[in-house]
Amino acid sequence: MQTPMNPTVSAPQGKPLASVLRFFQVFESVGVLAMLLIVVVAMSIINPVYLNLNNVVNIVITASIISVVGMGMTMAVAMGGLDLSVGSIQALTACVAASLLDTTNIPLTIVGTLLLGMLIGMLNGAIISRLRVPAFVATLGMMSILRGAALLFTDGQSILIMGHDDFARLNTGRLLGIPVPFIIALITLAAFYILLKHTPFGRHVCAIGGNENAALATGLKIGRTRVLVFGLVGLSAALSGIMLSAQLLIVDGTLGTGLELQAIAVTVLGGTSLAGGSGNLPGTLLGSLLVAAISSAMNILRVPPFYQYLALGLLLILALALDALRRTLVKRAMMGEA
């Protein structure tokens, strides 16, 4: 309070701000990694089965499927948005992919399913930007609509994927010893990373997330950017739907319940702030590995499945609390009260 208003605030207050920011930068890159290491080391001591190649591959595959959706979600959060409909999109696209397999070939199935997911996502974006409905309610409504669509599409039945060994290889295959799902996740990471950090589009996304009014005043095409970002979320959810159907080989309209929670959790765990304005995509991948490692640990320890919801919920609240703390500290440092 007694410090005089200073036009060059950053100079005298640079020190606390820098140290706060450095702490969180270090935490963002190392914190999740440290938690991951703790889980892995603790589990390998408690039960060596945890480090079996099979189990590690399973963890990586589960993480890859979550991380693909998580990266889409990270783009939306960076733009100051949110998509609660990803679980329903995953269910619908997984069912569509399973039934397309029987009528066409694999490449067409994949392209068609991804296109469907992208269009659904763009519809989300159009509802949000044209009807001016807050993202979380619009996608909450779409979550219900698409869940109904998935159940109607399958008529409440399961769809078996049989006799498509090449499709199953999307899950079981290896390339240079690396599981294919992980390669898909890495390619998605690279593509989204380039989009977010090295294109005008990505800068617009962060600008809208940072300050929508300023972005509007600068003349950015907010509506179009928003439609495209939600299109990307839909695309990533559809990709995860394909990966999931290749893993399960039996799909139904109830898949993906609670996926929105996982996707948001890995995004926030990875260090993307809900305040918007930036996205940490590699962090999202690490966050997914952590969530998958914890869930595998709980399976091996024979913890009943509902404890996993508890763990995920608590993990999310913890990550959100850290995010809130970071925002408060950064704000305080910038105001010069640190």
């Binding site: 929670l261 919801y309 995920l312 919920g313 609240i317 959100l320 609390a321 809130a324 925002r327």
Partner: peptide
């Protein structure tokens, strides 16, 4: 200081 809709989403699963 967590946004209400995300906090309560987490609490719902808890």
């Amino acid at each position: 200081r967590v946004p209400a809709f995300i906090a309560t989403l987490g609490m719902m699963y808890i």
